[in-house]
Simulated assay, not measured.
Amino acid sequence: MHGPVLVNCLLALLTAAAGASCLVRLRRSPCVPDAPRPPKAPGTPGAPGAPADAHRPLARESDAAEALMGLGMAAMAVTGATVPPAVWAALFGLPATAFLLAAVTAPAGRAHRLHHAVGALAMTYTALAMAVSADRQHHHAAGLGVPLLTGALLLYFGGYTVWAGSRLLRTPAGTLAVGTAGLPQACRLAMGIGMFAMLLTM
Rank of each mutant, 00 (worst) to 15 (best):
P51S: 13
A17S: 09
M76T: 06
P172G: 02
R167L: 12
A52M: 10
T105D: 07
A102E: 04
F92I: 03
A65I: 02
A98V: 07
L183A: 09
P4C: 04
V104W: 12
R25S: 13
P147N: 05
A50V: 11
A120H: 11
K40A: 10
A54S: 07
L154M: 10
H112I: 09
V132Q: 15
L91H: 02
V87T: 11
G174S: 00
M76I: 15
H112W: 09
L154I: 06
D63R: 05
A181Q: 14
L144Q: 14
L91S: 08
G159A: 04
P42Q: 07
R188K: 14
L6F: 13
P184W: 00
G151Y: 04
A86Y: 06
D63K: 07
L128Q: 08
A152F: 08
G93F: 01
C31Q: 09
T171V: 12
A96E: 08
L148M: 11
S133A: 12
A67E: 04
L71C: 06
A67M: 04
A96L: 04
T201R: 08
G143I: 04
S133Y: 01
H115Q: 10
V7E: 15
P84R: 00
P147G: 03
A129M: 04
A106K: 15
A120N: 09
A77N: 05
A141F: 13
R110F: 04
G119A: 12
V146P: 06
L168V: 03
T124L: 15
A197P: 02
L91R: 07
R167W: 05
C9A: 09
M130P: 05
A108Q: 13
E61S: 14
L121T: 14
A141N: 04
P36K: 00
P48K: 02
A35F: 10
T79Y: 08
L68N: 01
G49I: 10
H2R: 14
G46A: 07
L149M: 09
G165D: 02
T150P: 10
A64P: 01
L148Q: 11
A173G: 15
L128K: 07
K40Y: 08
P42E: 14
P48L: 13
A108I: 05
Y125G: 01
V32I: 09
R136N: 09
R170E: 14
R60D: 12
G174Q: 00
H138M: 07
L94C: 05
A186K: 00
C31K: 11
G46F: 04
R28W: 06
L155D: 13
M202S: 10
A129D: 12
A127C: 07
Y156I: 08
S21D: 08
M202K: 03
N8F: 08
G151T: 10
P45R: 03
R37E: 11
L58A: 08
G80D: 14
M76Y: 08
M123W: 02
A108D: 11
R170C: 13
G119Y: 01
L153W: 02
H55I: 10
A141P: 07
V83H: 00
F92W: 03
H2V: 14
V104P: 03
A47N: 01
A152I: 03
M69Q: 12
M1Y: 12
L6N: 12
G174L: 06
G174V: 08
D135G: 14
A52W: 07
D53Q: 12
A164Y: 01
A75Q: 06
A108M: 06
A47E: 03
R113F: 03
M198P: 04
P45Y: 04
A50G: 11
L154W: 00
A86F: 06
L153E: 03
A75F: 08
A190N: 01
P38R: 09
